[in-house]
Design a protein around this nucleic acid. Structure first.
Lengths: 234, 234
DNA sequence: CAATGCTACGATGTATACAAATATTCGAAG
DNA sequence: CTTCGAATATTTGTATACATCGTAGCATTG
């Protein structure tokens, strides 16, 4: 059904692992499944069969089980006793809670970025924003989504707080499968652009408080749209 | 060397697992090791031997390895390639970063608590604070530490945001082994009491902003003391 | 016909066996 | 005596085998 060939380096936790070539199967499977789940290609609520996944990756159940345990600790899957693993499905009220936390964390990123950003980072953010404007096309929402991600990642980096960046990134990944649906809302694209502009100008002015509230506002508005979407389309 | 008999229900992640009696060995071992690590009874940097722990728990290596993977995903241990697991030791600059995030999260807890707290929760916090005052004795730092934990837990609960509570609790547990050392600083006990008072009064007055800054201040001061301690005693 | 209990199958949890890589030790050379 | 290196030993990673639990299907009974 799926082919888990896609591999990326999106380590969301400060789980650096050994950078040397020797990567374990368990780790490789964890990354692949995390990508599949965050992208929504494996839907929330779907049960993950150990044997089936072991076959798909061409390994035994052991490394698959270890990957499941890691994903469970990162809240990407739920382990229910002896009933197997299923992709975590997040209830609406929990999404509200998560966005409230994410708004605060992203806000902190922006606040720190406003105080600490270096010229080359500022230039990079400007460049990303230009690309995002160019990609503001309802046809290419996937490209828009990716560039948007780049923008936030650039702010994380400019915060000069690696732990905060990792924590925020992890949270972002957890809700990624739900976020992606909202990007398709037509009003979201334009709203995102203007909200980003507010954040960027505040950071450029080194106005920490304004950057904080602008980013918090941005995330909260996204959360509101997401809830509207869920309320309408379930 | 250690006897891992201590068992608790401190689930830091929204990892509810099956509440029915049938708990897997892997989960039991994860909880036990997490408690040992958070309490500092297993020191940061110590290598965890699979065989040794398997023997101590009377199981095979398999569930131990699964527990290691879960702890690694929660950042309690580091897995380095094929070189085994060791208790994560947190560098000073990372502790700074973590306290910055924790200050923000605990601050958010306090802010929400100020807006949402119910009378019985307020009464509970007052009662905990009274007990903390009574335990303000350099001899019984462990009791003080535990009651202090209760106070923060009560604020988490009053925030009415279960995800925020879990996230904050998890972060608190990660730095627990380091926090505990600071509690022994004589000035910390009195400082904690007065800082808590400020938080409590702000919450009682439903002054969200003041509660936020009071709690943030509290956590930041603790972080500063912790860094002073580390600078002095390594 | 619905509900309950039994049985068989399948999946998970755990133990053990094996392979590969790293750590260690012992020896030889400088 | 120190240092480098090869062989051994230990440990991790993975595969397989076994035990145990959950579920589904069917039969039986009220």
């Amino acid at each position: 059904m799926h082919d888990f060939c896609a591999q990326d380096e999106s380590n969301c936790l400060p789980n650096e692992q050994n950078s040397k070539g020797g990567e374990t199967h368990a780790e490789r499977i964890r990354k692949a499944l995390e990508t599949e789940i965050a992208s929504g290609r494996i839907e929330p609520g779907k049960r993950l069969d150990e044997q089936e996944i072991a076959l798909q990756f061409g390994v035994s159940r052991t490394p698959v089980r270890e990957a499941f345990r890691m994903l469970a600790a990162s809240s990407f899957v739920d382990l229910r006793g002896r009933q197997g693993a299923m992709v975590r499905s997040i209830a609406g009220h929990t999404l509200v809670e998560m966005f409230q936390v994410m708004a605060e964390l992203e806000g902190l990123c922006a606040r720190l970025a406003a105080r600490r950003i270096k010229p080359e980072q500022m230039a990079r953010i400007d460049a990303i924003h230009k690309r995002l404007e160019a990609a503001c096309d309802p046809q290419g929402v996937d490209a828009f989504y990716d560039i948007n991600q780049e923008f936030h990642e650039a702010v994380y980096e400019a915060s000069c707080n690696a732990f905060l960046a990792a924590q925020t990134r992890g949270l972002r990944n957890q809700v990624a499968a739900y976020r992606r649906r909202v990007t398709r809302m037509p009003t979201r694209l334009d709203a995102t652009l203007s909200e980003h502009s507010a954040v960027i100008e505040a950071i450029r002015a080194h106005d920490a408080e304004r950057a904080h509230s602008a980013m918090r506002n941005h995330v909260n508005l996204l959360g509101d749209d997401l809830l509207d979407f869920l309320a309408a389309y379930g």
